[in-house]
Design a protein around this nucleic acid. Sequence first.
DNA 1: CAGACATATTATTCTTCAATATATTGTCGA
DNA 2: TCGACAATATATTGAAGAATAATATGTCTG
Lengths: 103, 103
Amino acid sequence: MLTIKPRPRSLAKFRAATSEAAALLRTLANEDRLSLLCQLTQGESCVSDLAEKTSIMQPTLSQQLGVLREQGLVATRRDGKRIFYSISDPRALALLRTLYGLY
Amino acid sequence: MLTIKPRPRSLAKFRAATSEAAALLRTLANEDRLSLLCQLTQGESCVSDLAEKTSIMQPTLSQQLGVLREQGLVATRRDGKRIFYSISDPRALALLRTLYGLY
DNA sequence: CAGACATATTATTCTTCAATATATTGTCGA
DNA sequence: TCGACAATATATTGAAGAATAATATGTCTG
């Protein structure tokens, strides 16, 4: 049977954890954001490179990168005109690793 | 740096995998569905038990269980008036395990 | 087979999310 | 400091998702 042994914890903490986890999943649960993050698992990348690799339209790209920034999943670093993105959230990376293993 | 070594694969396959993965994430990315699945990680459970444990309203509960069924994440078994649900998708379980580890 | 109970379905409204178009900010080099 | 380029932000429309209410199906018990 497919089960997981529970770790004891309070109901309130369980609810809070579920809520946080759902928020993280919501952020990952968009095809554009997911492929951006997949690209970023292989190292930092600037916006124009991401645009080329993912063929996402520029405004959409910028909007979705904005979501990833707001949620704290990515960090940015400017070098001249370019802005480089990289994954900054270990939880997101852990989920991406699991997904890599599954697909 | 937070990265993952890539496994070589075609762009088409990568796109398809991303699309499938995003679909699975979308299904998990709802607080109600996530807590239902969390309950089910501890073994099968009938609807009324799930309602009690999660305090989700009956119609919402039934609707979200319907989503989980449609997506093939859960299996059902009837015993008299009651219908027992259990997790049937190993990928979903793998993600839930990862989440358990993170939160 | 009638009544009670467990679960499912449908319909409607409301909200959230995504796509496109358009405008703006910030950096560099002449 | 002007023009070109890289990236971000805003606004609007359209589509998908969720909550609630009301109704229906299916199974047991008497």
